[in-house]
Structure formats: C-alpha cells, structure tokens
C-alpha cells in the first residue's frame, strides 16, 4: 500500500532496491515481479549502499533524471542496515531511502528490533518481560546527518504521503522516509484495522507526521486533536498486557516527545499555528 503511494508520488522513472524484508516476498518469487519498476534485491544490510551503487551507475551513464529508491524494513534500517544508511546519508547520496517500519522482525516471526516500542510484546520480548526500551528515534539520527529531507508518513494519511514523495522527488541528495506500517499478525490486529491503527498512531501523537529539512528545520504537518495513547495501544494485542502505570509511562513519554517536536517547529517557524496549543494540553 505504502509502496503504491510512494510510486504515485515518484512517477515511473524509478529504480528500486529492496533488502531482505517482507517485500522480498511480496514482490513475488521468480519468475514473478509485482512492481512495474526495475528492482534489485539486495542483502539485508545494504539497501542504502546498493541504491548508491545504482545511483552512481545512472549518473555515469547520464541518466540523472531516474529516481533511485531504497525500500527497507525497520530491521534493515534501524539495526543491521544503519551503518550503510549512515554512510549514504553522510555522503548525501542522491537517493530516496524509505523505511517501512512495522516495529519488529516480522518476516522471521516477530522478534524485537530497535524499532520495537516500549512495552510491546514480540517473540523475543515476551509478555513477562516486554520491550523495556523506547523505540530508536531514527528521524533524529537521520537529521543528525543534516540530510536535505527527512519525513514521516503513514498510509492512513495518503495525501500527506503522496505530497511528501512528490516533494522529495524534486530534492537532490539524501531523502529519508520513516513510514509506520502496521503488521496485522505482528501487532495482533485484524487485517482490516491496519489503516485505522496507523491513523490512531498519528492521532495519539505516538507517530507524529512531520518533516525535517536540512537536518534542522522541523515542520509538523498534522496537528492531532490528541487522543490518549491508550486508544492506540488497546487496539493492538501486542500491548494488551500493559498495566495502567505502563500506559501512563508511555503517555508521558509521548507527551514529552511531542512537546520537543512542537518546540522545534516553533524554533523553525517562529510561531505555532492556531491548532497547536490544543495539542499540548489535551489528551
């Protein structure tokens, strides 16, 4: 779904590379290929550099107008692929790197990754001792490389999603997308709820929609009315075991993160839009 929106934003002169992830399967087993763009499968930790390699080849051949996109899961980005990603970001490779984050190693059967949020159940963080650390903030890591563009997006906000990809298409240099992508079996949700859950993640400020330009300029794209995180957590089986205290802990964490983000938005723009104030007080 996210891939379709991305390609909608990018047009058809796109080449992609995909490391080991769900998409290794989704695109189809040989001889099938579901996407209508050239695609190179690559090793788990190499999405960013494989894309850089393709980019280099296209540049040498004078095909600068072709967009090169790396499309990787959270494991391939937050964990094993972080080194190559950091390298590509630091070199400001002219590629688009997309991580579709389902917050665990889903393809291998739901093991925790560094993208797994606090309190979540996975097969390696069982209910008796669930994930004890917050999710790695990949956006801040990417911003720290001072890349021209980094943005969050989710399928639940398709217009925002497509707009950002269109915008990214015309930026030269490293562009990074963090896409929250619910995984029904991994999150223990019914398949028809995936869009709803993604939307709730935004509405509860667990997953804010924002952009960071040149690593510094922060723009919040959507100001949620602000529902309690409980609404988001309780939709999902992976959080069912959480106690009230744990939920409160998450709420405080989310509120704090949101305040930071709003502050950065204010720093960037000099002021806050009208709807911002309500988001700081309401739950």
């Amino acid at each position: 779904m996210a891939m379709r929106l991305a390609l909608k934003g990018l047009g058809n002169r796109v080449m992609a590379t995909i490391p080991a992830c769900c998409w290794t399967i989704i695109d189809g087993a040989w001889p099938n290929h579901a996407l209508k763009i050239p695609l190179m499968h690559t090793a788990f930790e190499t999405a960013a550099i494989a894309a850089s390699g393709i980019r280099a080849a296209l540049d040498v051949k004078g095909e600068e107008d072709v967009t090169v996109m790396a499309w990787a899961g959270d494991g391939g980005t937050f964990d094993i692929g972080l080194q190559a990603l950091s390298g590509a970001a630091e070199r400001n490779e002219n590629i688009i790197y997309v991580t579709y984050d389902n917050e665990a190693y889903m393809n291998t059967g739901i093991q925790r990754s560094s993208a797994t949020p606090y309190g979540a159940w996975t097969t390696t963080t069982p209910v008796k001792h669930p994930e004890s650390r917050p999710k790695k903030n990949i956006m801040e890591i990417m911003a720290a490389h001072r890349i021209p563009y980094a943005a969050t997006a989710t399928i639940a906000f398709p217009d925002d999603f497509v707009r950002k990809f269109r915008k990214a298409k015309d930026i030269v240099g490293m562009r990074f997308f963090h896409i929250l992508s619910p995984c029904p079996p991994g999150w223990k949700i019914p398949s028809d709820m995936s869009v709803k859950v993604a939307r709730m993640a935004v509405e509860t400020k667990v997953f804010p929609l924002y952009e960071i330009e040149d690593g510094e300029r922060v723009t919040i794209n959507y100001w949620p009315e602000g529902r309690p995180v409980r609404d988001y957590l309780m939709m999902q089986g992976r959080f069912k075991h959480l106690t009230d205290e744990q939920i409160e802990h998450i709420q405080q964490f989310v509120d704090h993160q949101w305040k930071r983000l709003v502050h950065l938005h204010e720093l960037t723009h000099g002021s806050l839009p009208e709807e911002a104030q309500a988001t700081l007080t309401s739950r």
Partner: peptide
C-alpha cells in the same frame, strides 16, 4: 535494470 522492461533481479527462488 532498465526502465523499458522493468524486472527484478535476485528475487526469491523456491
């Protein structure tokens, strides 16, 4: 890789 005949390289082989 080429744009005229988009194909995948290295796809899963059962």
């Amino acid at each position: 890789l080429n744009l005229e005949h988009p194909h995948a390289i290295g796809s899963l082989a059962d």
